[in-house]
Amino acid sequence: MEVWDIFDLPEGHKPIGCKWVYKIKRKPDGIVDKYKARLVAKGFNQVEGLDYFKSFSTVANSVTVRVLLALAAGKAWIFHQIDINNVFLHGYLDEEIYMTLPEGYKEDQKHRKGEVQLILTVYVNDILITGTLESVILEVKSFLHKEFSIKDLGIAKYFLGIKIARSTNEMFLTQQKYIRDKIANMKMEKASVVATPLLHDWHAHNDDSPLIINSSVYRRLHPTDNNWRATLHVVRYLKGTIRHGLFYSTHQDGSRLKSYCDSDWKKCPLTRKSVTGYCVLLDSALVF
């Protein structure tokens, strides 16, 4: 893949540092799935416009995943999932970037290398594969296994925090583990639930409530006491709707796109602009 080359640092150039980041990845039931290690370049030491001009790498987002799941449900396609063990976000660089060698580096040999519809959805190193023929999906996975070190996860059951439960006639998407993790992180397992996602009288504008003293909470969530109360309300709402999800029927062809919106006229107390909410459905499947 030729992601980097080892050089003596040219005169006049300053390398950026790097560090290893370790994480335990768990299955939806909490059992340890694997131990992960990532090598992260300390790009925050670079100056935009001097060391680089742009930084962007395309990955799938949650809307893309929901659209694909809705289409696949209607066409009765099977989803397979793989995990690339060693992955790099791909982007084109016009600048020369130099990084110090990672701790514990040891140079090793590098490994490179009728109509059928096939779709691959990539989010960094997690890949969903679906299409008209499962045999072709298996061929693609076999090819990728020859080119990269991969972990074959079989039929997709959990992707980007979304649990995928499927039967013959339906698909049901939930985020139970994601919500439980947030509740545990906030230590709100015993908190009461609420029926609405926001306080009825809450406004974010002209917020003069006291700042939160706990800096770790500030970095994770919101800066003021008013916003903090609203956040706790949202978590309590999620706790009460933890079993809710999105239902996708197999009796749809994905040919009709519908959208609905609802505007609250002059809702903003500062600008007097309207506040608009909307949703988009692919046939009967809510995707955005």
Score class of each variant (00 low, 15 high):
residue 4 W to V: 09
residue 273 K to E: 08
residue 278 Y to S: 14
residue 25 K to I: 03
residue 6 I to C: 04
residue 85 N to V: 05
residue 172 F to I: 05
residue 166 R to I: 01
residue 154 G to Y: 09
residue 159 F to G: 00
residue 78 I to C: 05
residue 125 N to W: 05
residue 255 S to N: 08
residue 49 G to V: 05
residue 47 V to A: 04
residue 259 S to M: 07
residue 36 K to I: 14
residue 204 A to W: 15
residue 73 A to C: 10
residue 248 Y to E: 01
residue 97 I to V: 15
residue 172 F to A: 06
residue 85 N to Y: 06
residue 118 L to F: 02
residue 80 H to E: 06
residue 237 Y to T: 06
residue 86 N to G: 09
residue 47 V to I: 15
residue 90 H to V: 04
residue 193 V to G: 07
residue 142 S to E: 15
residue 16 I to R: 08
residue 5 D to A: 15
residue 233 H to D: 08
residue 288 F to E: 13
residue 88 F to S: 03
residue 154 G to F: 11
residue 271 T to G: 03
residue 8 D to P: 08
residue 48 E to C: 11
residue 268 C to M: 07
residue 50 L to K: 14
residue 245 G to T: 00
residue 95 E to D: 09
residue 259 S to N: 07
residue 14 K to H: 12
residue 20 W to R: 08
residue 149 S to M: 13
residue 231 T to M: 15
residue 166 R to Y: 03
residue 173 L to K: 00
residue 81 Q to A: 02
residue 118 L to R: 01
residue 101 L to F: 04
residue 136 V to E: 14
residue 142 S to G: 15
residue 260 Y to V: 07
residue 58 T to G: 02
residue 66 R to M: 07
residue 285 A to D: 02
residue 5 D to F: 11
residue 285 A to H: 01
residue 235 V to R: 00
residue 200 H to F: 13
residue 166 R to K: 11
residue 235 V to D: 00
residue 121 T to N: 09
residue 236 R to E: 11
residue 194 V to T: 13
residue 57 S to K: 01
residue 48 E to Y: 12
residue 277 G to A: 07
residue 231 T to E: 08
residue 203 H to W: 11
residue 79 F to N: 00
residue 222 H to L: 14
residue 27 K to D: 13
residue 179 I to K: 02
residue 89 L to C: 03
residue 9 L to E: 12
residue 9 L to T: 12
residue 135 S to V: 15
residue 232 L to P: 03
residue 253 D to Q: 13
residue 185 N to K: 15
residue 68 L to A: 10
residue 216 S to A: 15
residue 165 A to T: 12
residue 38 R to G: 11
residue 234 V to M: 13
residue 223 P to H: 11
residue 123 Y to S: 03
residue 28 P to Q: 05
residue 17 G to V: 03
residue 258 K to R: 10
residue 285 A to G: 04
residue 206 N to F: 11
residue 121 T to E: 04
residue 140 V to S: 04
residue 18 C to M: 04
residue 255 S to C: 07
residue 216 S to Y: 10
residue 284 S to K: 04
residue 110 K to P: 13
residue 189 E to K: 03
residue 17 G to P: 04
residue 136 V to N: 07
residue 229 R to L: 15
residue 41 A to Y: 02
residue 226 N to G: 07
residue 30 G to L: 10
residue 232 L to A: 13
residue 170 E to C: 06
residue 126 D to C: 04
residue 69 L to G: 01
residue 212 I to T: 06
residue 236 R to S: 13
residue 101 L to G: 05
residue 71 L to C: 10
residue 163 K to V: 02
residue 174 T to K: 06
residue 90 H to W: 01
residue 216 S to H: 14
residue 12 G to I: 12
residue 62 S to H: 10
